[in-house]
């Protein structure tokens, strides 16, 4: 039973991170389309923000792997 709940938790974490990273990607594409000359700055900030969101999701996933 706890295994099933942990799997659900991992899934929920992935949904949250997916929405977050999707938003970052969409907005970064918008920004690049508007200001193609700022592509370098936008790219590194995009990766930084995605990494921060990913961190929260990964903690949830790791916890759900090791909760038995």
């Amino acid at each position: 039973m706890t295994g099933t709940l942990a799997a659900l938790g991992a899934g929920l974490a992935v949904i949250g991170a997916g929405i977050g990273i999707g938003n970052i990607g969409a907005k970064a594409m918008d920004a690049i389309a508007r200001q193609p000359e700022a592509v370098g700055d936008i790219r590194s900030n995009m990766i930084l923000m995605a990494a921060l969101i990913e961190g929260a999701a990964l903690i949830a996933i790791i916890l759900s792997i090791f909760v038995k």
Partner: peptide, 11 residues
């Protein structure tokens, strides 16, 4: 640092 550790490990 905890997220630094987990991010690299988990990926």
């Amino acid at each position: 640092p905890l997220t630094l550790m987990l991010r690299l490990f988990a990926n």
